[in-house]
Design a protein around this nucleic acid. Structure first.
Lengths: 339, 339
DNA sequence: TTGACTTTCTAAAACGTTTTCGGTAAGATG
DNA sequence: CATCTTACCGAAAACGTTTTAGAAAGTCAA
């Protein structure tokens, strides 16, 4: 059917082995032969078959990306989409392709690990999954190389954004401007990201001897602006409402704006907000949101690099943790109370 | 290294062929043997190797997805992300995986077609690319099955959203409410989507004998709210500004809001807007945008189905065009001038 | 009993590569 | 001239499957 290495060999008057060697940059090939093979290959439009190669070498040059599919948004998630995009770009530039790993291939349910094996991926990157589940555990402690984003397993390298520090900065930012009644609507506590952020929040509040009344500390949901709207409404209805509210993320700001409008508060004046993520689209809103811009570009790229390095030099593979720091974007949503 | 079909055969006391047949649901296998094989396979944790299978059968159960990588946003594009997600989900439920197709694999530049061949994808879905380029042409007229989204090639099936009709509805909507000075900031004219929309616009305007002065018809860019802001500012600065402006898409509305604020116009009163796409996040903005909600779910799913059908029943493969109709979402951005 | 089917299984070739191990020829060395 | 290197190339096995063609054994009717 297709054009194979045999056709090239025949046309060039050489053996299959020799042609193969040319494509794999073996040393024992004369420059003339090399050139000849290349020419012939070009002329008849030969391209090595990745499948056959993968079978032989047990390397597919294909990386898996695993994130929670049934979670809200999948690839639609603005934060993960950016990370995935960066990951994919780095893969490509290093000669790898990317496939999504899931567990329902056709009718037959398949574990993540089995899917990886079945597809023969050289490695897999995990992001936004339930890192405490059995399945993920099996995958992580298997022989397939892996790297995780925003969660660390001791035996594997990981890329984590400095969530604790990010929230600290944001909280500090508010306190510096005279806020003391500070509320935090955090995301799902099942995620370790949330846990780190909560740590950052409490740490800062404690450092400044500020109280955190229970009604100021609410469990919201990531990316759920409707939910956020309700919670902000609740907060603003308190007898003693907060002056500053940390939101789960940028998208939640959409709900916060609505709530503020309903309550007739002017944002950045009567009530202050901060988000998390630094999503471009949200930055266009008025008033501009004060937030932490996550370096998604770096996260995706670094994850790919760690993974590929691990694959290509298995001996030197460690369990390096790479911290990625976000950047505080100062918007107009935080009032200065002590000006 | 891994567990192969041979191990299963040995342990079950059967031949490799028999085991293979069990996994491929051949008829000439007794129920007892079938059960035995399944049991043994289960017990030693055997899983068929997709690579070897692909090599033999020339089917990879892997589908390519191709979209313009260097275009603005890649996977980050809110509209395409939704389509891709739906496509991916449908693939999975029918037993296929999805890989992104690009042209820079490692150092070596590779044509899209070659990438498809190299990866041995069973088919490829095209969206948001330059459909008029040579490379895409080569791919479409090759032997690899393909389906296109929002563009039709006569020889291939396609899924297109009814862009002409969408803009017609929007324009009609404005006219019914008494608007006559209607401007259109359209997207890049290189895309056939834009061309269809422009057709819809002119058709409606002509049907109502309304003029379209050149200064009301501007080339903007998709997803570029900054650009949109400038163009809306220009429009609002005209001696005789429009009362209604069709925007390239929903994201552009962010720029439009800014421009209206700068010019001191109240949206839905002094100036009216309509978007396109129906992106969730934008729908949370105030005032709520009147727009066409694209049925991205259906588009992605249908594209996957067409492609897989074509792969699995090559004989019945046609060049069916599937039209997906959007739905007008009435927001608060259109003033009623004849009320 | 015998031939004709059926049913169930297997041997072996093939898919397109990579890689090991040798082999050959030419040049270098003494 | 004999031997040793060196540089280059090829034969063949292997990777883990699928699939064709046929073998063996059982069934059944006449």
């Amino acid at each position: 059917m297709g054009i194979t290495i045999k056709d090239v060999a025949a046309k060039a008057g050489l053996s299959v082995s020799t042609v193969s060697k040319v494509f794999n940059h073996y040393a024992d090939i004369s420059p003339e032969t090399k050139e000849l093979v290349m020419e012939v290959a070009q002329s008849i439009g030969y391209y090595p078959n990745a499948t056959a190669r993968a079978l032989k070498t047990n390397r597919s040059y294909n990386l898996g990306f695993l994130f929670d599919e049934n979670a809200s948004s999948g690839i639609t998630h603005p934060f993960f989409a950016e990370v995935i995009n960066a990951f994919k770009n780095e893969c490509e530039s290093r000669g790898y392709d990317m496939t999504f790993i899931n567990r329902n291939v056709g009718q037959t349910q398949m574990s993540y690990l089995n899917h990886c094996r079945y597809r023969n991926v050289d490695g897999v990157c995990l992001a936004g999954v339930d890192f405490f589940s059995r399945e993920i555990h099996d995958l992580i402690y298997s022989d397939v190389p892996s790297v995780s984003i925003d969660h660390v397993f001791e035996t594997r390298p990981s890329v984590v954004s400095e969530n604790t520090r990010g929230i600290q900065e944001l909280t500090e930012f508010a306190i510096q401007r005279g806020h003391t009644r500070i509320a935090y609507i955090h995301g799902e506590t099942t995620s370790s990201v949330t846990r780190h952020r909560i740590t950052g929040f409490y740490r800062t509040m404690t450092a400044h001897s500020l109280p955190v009344p229970p009604e100021y500390f609410l469990e919201g949901k990531y990316l759920d602006s409707r939910r956020c709207r309700e919670l902000v409404l609740n907060l603003l209805s308190l007898p003693e409402p907060p002056t500053f509210i940390l939101l789960p993320d940028d998208v939640s700001y959409l709900g916060a704006i609505e709530a503020a409008n309903i309550k007739g508060r002017i944002i950045g004046q009567d009530i202050s907000f901060a988000g998390y993520d630094g999503i471009q689209m949200i930055q266009y809103l008025k008033p501009k949101l004060t937030t932490i811009r996550q370096n998604t570009e770096e996260m995706g790229k670094k994850a790919a690099d760690l993974l590929i390095d691990m694959i290509e030099q298995p001996n030197t593979a460690g369990s390096e943790i790479t911290y990625i720091t976000g950047k505080l974007l100062e918007g107009k949503t935080v009032a200065v109370l002590n000006g």
